[in-house]
Write a protein that binds this DNA or RNA. Structure first.
Lengths: 196, 196
DNA sequence: CGCACCTATTCAACGAATTGACTACAAGGT
DNA sequence: ACCTTGTAGTCAATTCGTTGAATAGGTGCG
């Protein structure tokens, strides 16, 4: 039935902990937060929801709307919740990184260093944008509480912890990129001096 | 011929900038450094090398060994080097994250919080090990020079920049994990006090 | 008035990735 | 003699991921 690469399944079940959602809703939720640690396209989500429904891990109902296409809303079933809980106890497999920018950085010395410089600068813009969106999500999660109170009293801190991770990841991205640009610029300056 | 997801191709070509290597060698190189930004299994590498050779981007020669199976050694061809250089100029696609640990952290509140705590602690051990190995690679890359001298004078800084990224990524991992454990432990302590 | 974008999903096709099993031989230890 | 680990790969099956396109009405903008 399922391969070993089944985290998408649990990423979806985990997202449904927030409440009932359509495939379209999930696509948006993934876009703003889940994609930070598990990216998925809408097609993947629709397919996965189909399977989860077939396996009884989610319950589906069709909601007719006027002025809009029908939508199917999904909720976590008791079996789904149990499956998700059991999943948390199993060893996670190590992270598999996939960053095309770094493939380009690796080859920078035989390639177009200026273009790569540009890519790094764009990555910084992207990271700043992501951080701003994360900060909004954070405010929303806290719901008026201080971080300390929230983390002590809330009965649902998982999403906050993963959000913290997303934020510090992007901050780290920025730090690295700043340093890399500094290094590239210093070298570019040296080159122009040494080649009259 | 090729899809749009072609970074593995360039990760391999980039790794061959270091010199001639067999599929087996590449698997080891990926394991210690490249996998930090582009993970690949040996099977993927063998398949990719086959294709690269067919396309004339690498040159292959069979080396007969006694007491060992034959091996095929690959070198970057002029065409391969050009292709790699052209690749660096193109827009990189955004990073796609895949971290199963964070899927578990997200669902921690309905799952086995102690087990997840354990997974985070293991991730810290892993990160510390990775950092130690990176530090050895760093010393090797510097070849006796100070970082400043190396970054100013070397004609190949790409690998150093990606290594920096790998190191700061793991350091960030550690910082996040420490904070997460702190939070989980504080909550666990509160629970035992409040449930007599 | 028209055009582009948003909601909401489905389908088809293809390419990429993952897993497990299998082949061989060598070196080193118990 | 046996077992494990390391070298150096290949093959087949299946799952996963990606892209493009089709459907179909609604909303906002100039």
């Amino acid at each position: 039935m399922y391969g070993v690469q089944m985290s998408l399944k649990y990423a979806v079940l985990g997202a449904l902990l927030e409440g009932e959602a359509s495939g379209y809703d999930l696509a948006k939720i993934f876009d703003v937060s889940v994609s930070n640690f598990w990216a998925a396209t809408p097609q993947q989500l629709y397919r996965e929801l189909e399977r989860l429904a077939a396996d009884g891990l989610v319950e589906a109902r069709v909601v007719a709307q006027d002025r809009r296409p029908n939508k199917r809303m999904f909720t976590l079933s008791a079996a789904g919740r149990q499956d998700l809980a059991a999943f948390t106890a199993k060893e996670p497999r190590p992270t598999a990184a996939r960053d095309e920018l770094l493939v380009k950085v690796q080859a920078l010395d035989v390639g177009d260093a200026d273009a790569v410089r540009g890519h790094i600068a764009e990555r910084m813009d992207w990271a700043r944008g992501k951080l701003a969106r994360y900060e909004r999500v954070r405010i929303h999660l806290l719901g008026g509480l201080s971080e300390e109170d929230f983390l002590r009293d809330s009965d649902r801190i998982g999403p906050y912890l993963t959000l913290m991770r997303g934020m510090s990841f992007e901050e780290e991205n920025l730090r690295w990129a700043r340093r890399a640009l500094e290094i590239l610029d210093r070298r570019a300056a040296n080159r122009t001096v040494q080649l009259p």
